[in-house]
């Protein structure tokens, strides 16, 4: 009986180990494949790959404009999503009456599950035309449209995860604050927000992650031209692209070094996302330490 239990345990342990090893293996394969495919482009272009000159017939493969576009669209999306998301979470977890909460929460979670192509489709049908007419833009295709779509897509993630984090704040702490005579707003600002800040920052980082990696929705509403608008902060200009959007637009018929250059942009995206997720972990640990100490 004891023996069979032991055997059972070893087997289970090994299965879990294999599952863990499997996902690491996949990451390693992706890593290897990406770098192997991208290497010729890095070899060909060197640091010029970060430049802004994309001209395949002349052998120029600079994807700097796409990296710039990814950054600007992500910043724009976060300017929209962070205030909306956190405010929504505060309302849901602290202010909403319970009947409203029980109806709103599932709806918001449903919103997070809508496929990105649907957002892109709505963007191209409604948003682009609306922007074109409202802002008297040459066309609605722009960083602005991309940032709006991505911001809206990130809101439900931030709301839902931040709400979970705020709900996880122990009842006693909240009640202690209220019992000391603090108002509801003071309690939210001084007690609930600081205690749940690690969960909220995790939510924001996940939202940013979605914005950086999102492909279909943005590729539909951007111009997909490998150029930095003039001036660079002109978010109404249609010239511009993001790394993901450029890869999906150009991959179809590309061949030779051009394909390799697209793989190189994927490598750069991979590195950006890796740096972000590592720094988010460091940030999270720091925040946690700070609040444990204080």
């Amino acid at each position: 009986m004891l023996l069979s239990r032991k055997i059972k345990e070893t087997i289970i342990k090994n299965i879990f180990f294999l599952s863990a090893a499997f996902s690491i293996l996949i990451i390693l394969f992706i890593f290897y494949f990406l770098f192997q495919q991208a290497f010729p482009a890095f070899q060909h272009s060197g640091l010029d790959i970060f430049g802004t000159n994309w001209n395949p017939p002349e052998g120029k493969y600079g994807i700097g404009a796409a990296i710039y576009g990814t950054i600007i669209v992500t910043i724009g999306a976060m300017i929209i999503a962070i205030p909306l998301g956190i405010a929504g979470a505060i309302f849901l977890s602290e202010l909403a009456p319970s009947y409203l909460r029980t109806t709103l929460k599932p709806i918001i979670e449903l919103l997070a599950g809508i496929p990105s192509i649907v957002f892109g489709f709505i963007g191209i049908i409604l948003l682009v035309g609306y922007l074109h007419l409202t802002f008297d833009m040459l066309s609605g295709y722009s960083y602005l449209a991309g940032a709006l779509i991505l911001g809206i897509m990130a809101v439900p993630i931030i709301v839902s995860m931040s709400d979970d984090a705020m709900k996880a704040v122990p009842r006693e702490i909240k009640e202690a604050s209220l019992a000391l005579g603090a108002t509801k707003w003071q309690t939210i600002k001084k007690v609930i927000m600081p205690t749940s800040i690690s969960g909220i920052s995790a939510a924001v980082i996940l939202g940013i992650g979605r914005a950086v990696g999102e492909t279909m929705a943005v590729s539909l509403v951007l111009g997909n031209i490998m150029k930095i608008p003039i001036p660079p902060w002109n978010i109404f200009e249609s010239k511009g692209t993001t790394v993901t959007s450029f890869i999906v637009t150009e991959m179809g018929e590309s061949s030779g070094l051009q394909t390799k250059a697209l793989f190189a942009s994927a490598v750069i995206l991979f590195i950006i996302v890796a740096i972000m997720s590592i720094s988010s972990n460091i940030l999270k640990q720091r925040v946690q330490k700070k609040f444990k100490g204080g």
């Binding site: 040459l138 066309s139 295709y141 111009g223 997909n224 031209i225 249609s238 010239k239 999906v248 637009t249 150009e250 179809g252």
Partner: peptide, 8 residues
Amino acid sequence: ILDVARSE
């Protein structure tokens, strides 16, 4: 010089 490039 394009304003918008599409893949299809």
